[in-house]
Amino acid sequence: MTLDALRIAQKDISIELRTRERMTSTILLSLVIILSFRFALFGFDMELSENPHLVAPILWTTIFFAGIMGLESSFSYEKENKYLDGLLLLPTSRYSIYLGKMLANLLFLIVVDLVTLVFVVAFFAYEPGGAFVTLLGVILLGTFSFVAMGTLVSGMTIAAKTRQSLLQIALIPLIVFTVVIPAVAATSKIVSGSGDVMPELNILVGFGILSLLLAYLLFGHIMED
């Protein structure tokens, strides 16, 4: 099962490495959002180091928007080229398909996260300093639970006509409490250097695992035909 999942992930990654469609558009979106924040909030003079409380909202707004855009195209290659049946006919379990897609999405989004972090550091003159490792940990865990639920919902919305807007409207209510608020709260705590982030990390990990379980139970039903 794991091996099949890795092969499916590898397929997505090699397609991406050849076309570079998703990565380019997602990173460009991230750049546009960061630049909008930069000039809308500060104009030309101020720096984020004077307003550290803004790091968390800026960082996560960008990651969530970019992430949703990345998820939208998660199944679009198969859908547009009518390879969906081919994917479903693979001699493997549906859960392996989910896991493979999830891993590929996770990898994409981690790259986008890192680039976004570089943008934040570069454009806002923000220096994470000693908190860098913890910050990275929170970003990775937040991305993991986001992608775990996001891939499941993205699978749900393949068949719908208005697929792209649907993914957002179906995903956001499910992750507001469980990913958005804990991730932003934990990041705020790290940036301001106060407080214990373990409760938030527990929620993120717990919801990520719950999403994997739900996917195990439901992805077969979702992808039945």
């Binding site: 749900m156 919305t157 068949a159 719908a160 006509k161 208005t162 807007s165 649907l166 409207i169 179906a170 956001i172 209510p173 499910l174 507001v176 439901l218 039903h221 979702i222 992808m223 039945e224 035909d225």
Partner: peptide
Amino acid sequence: WLIFIAYVAIRAGAVRHESIPRVAAIF
């Protein structure tokens, strides 16, 4: 409220006998 707006949106304009009813049921 958002969740059931999403539920109704999933159904809106969807083909009735494809996988949508099953997805909507799960949702």
